[in-house]
Simulated assay, not measured.
Amino acid sequence: MGDAPEAADPRPAPAEKRGRRPRGTAFALTFGLIGALVILALLSAGIGSYHIALGDIVASAQHRVGLGGAPLDRVGESVLWNVRLPRVVLALLVGASLGCAGALMQGVFGNPLAEPGVIGISAGAAVGAVASIALGLSFFGNWTVTICAFITGLITVLLVYALSRSGGRTEVVTLILTGIAVNAFAGALIGLFIFFADNAQITQITFWQLGSLSQSTWPKVLAVLPCALLGLAVAPFYARKLDLLALGERPARHLGVDVERLRVVLVLVVALLTAAAVAVAGIISFVGLLVPHLLRMANGPAHRFLVPASALGGALILVAGDLAARTVASPAELPLGVLTALFGSPFFFWLLRRTRRRQGGWA
């Protein structure tokens, strides 16, 4: 008689053998991102043409909340609280929104090349902003450009989703192709509005299209805060369903996931996050595309980590990018959207070559 077959080892395989990183890696990356974000935010608040020491920033903050400390001089207090901190906070909110939206888009479409601009949100928001500038609209005073951009961004994503539905279902390929068509149409509208705009309006339109946080104020922070907090709070609750969707639509349905409802909800969350970010900061590319890529490479594709970490990573990238934009060519300021595209494009090409050479695609 042959040897009896060996009993299967009931113990679970180590995390490395299951294709996942140890849980400690996720915790280390999360705390690393939080620590780097706090340090960079403090540095960004102090660095500039008017330098403010880190200790003075902490002392001023303590004084503001009644925990001792001491205020700065009149100019220093004004620079810190009316110029620097609104800009830093807005960079945190916009970066977190774009990073989280990118992770959700890639999870919903099952494609690491997806990002919010794919379904026309950024272009749609740009149409509203450009139209309000070129036509001289002032329905909402100084808030006209921001509100028009937000409204048209939401309308665009709803239009794309409605056009891509057939038989009560939405195919991912159809959704993406519809988004590409809407992006092209939005680009044509933007060009048309620019053609009829005067020189002053063209300057304003161009600056807005290139992306910037130079006009950050506390009212703008308060405008984007509800949308950002709502989207960032809702997104992590869908992490498990996104992991199941990564197995494929049919297995996800068998496991109890309402795929169509999941897509509707998350596309609306992405629209909310992206439209709010674009409305106050203009078009800033590659944040929602590259941040989830890097984190997926570092800790695998599990969305329980990927979604919140992408928000932290997006905030970190945008705070760093904004600091570089206003200091590299000081006293001039580089457009933030140009800076992110300038560094994001070659890095994305490197990612594509690395993936094709080592893995032949994303796992």
Rank of each mutant, 00 (worst) to 15 (best):
V94S: 01
T203S: 14
I47E: 07
A252Y: 02
V221D: 01
G256L: 04
N111R: 04
L192I: 11
L98P: 01
G282Q: 12
L113G: 02
C100P: 03
A325I: 08
L177N: 00
L42Y: 13
V307K: 05
A59T: 04
A28G: 09
G187Q: 10
F237D: 02
A228Q: 05
L163V: 03
A13T: 12
E77A: 10
N142C: 00
H51A: 15
I52H: 10
V89P: 01
T355D: 10
R354M: 11
F305V: 14
R74C: 00
G55T: 05
D198S: 10
I52C: 12
F150V: 10
A162I: 02
V265C: 13
A70N: 10
A332G: 04
G76P: 03
V172H: 00
T144L: 09
A26G: 13
L273T: 12
P12D: 14
P308A: 11
V130T: 14
L189A: 15
G107N: 04
L43C: 14
V269Y: 05
S214A: 14
A41K: 07
I194V: 14
I147V: 15
G95E: 01
L312W: 07
A4H: 11
A279M: 08
P226F: 04
G231F: 09
V287P: 03
A53V: 05
A239C: 07
A101V: 11
T327D: 14
F237E: 03
F139V: 13
A13F: 13
G211Y: 08
E333G: 01
L43V: 15
V270A: 11
G313A: 07
G99Q: 02
A252N: 05
I119V: 15
L289S: 11
H293C: 11
A275H: 08
G211Q: 05
V173G: 00
E77N: 14
F286H: 06
S285E: 07
A41Q: 08
Q201E: 13
A188Y: 06
A131L: 14
K241I: 02
P331V: 14
A36P: 07
L316D: 05
Q204A: 15
R326P: 01
L33V: 05
P112W: 03
V280A: 10
G211M: 09
W362K: 06
G288P: 07
N82V: 09
L232Q: 07
T174M: 00
G248W: 12
G231Y: 10
P14C: 07
A325V: 06
A223I: 04
G2C: 02
L247S: 03
A96K: 03
D56H: 04
V224Y: 03
E260R: 14
V157G: 04
F150P: 04
Q204W: 06
R84A: 07
G141R: 09
D56N: 06
A332I: 04
I52M: 10
I155D: 03
G95D: 01
E260G: 13
V83S: 09
T206D: 09
G76D: 03
T152P: 01
G360A: 11
A311L: 07
R87E: 04
A101I: 12
L104F: 08
L339Y: 05
Q106C: 03
V264D: 01
K17W: 13
V291L: 12
V173S: 00
G231D: 13
L295F: 14
L175V: 00
S97C: 10
L336G: 12
T25G: 00
A125F: 08
L104M: 12
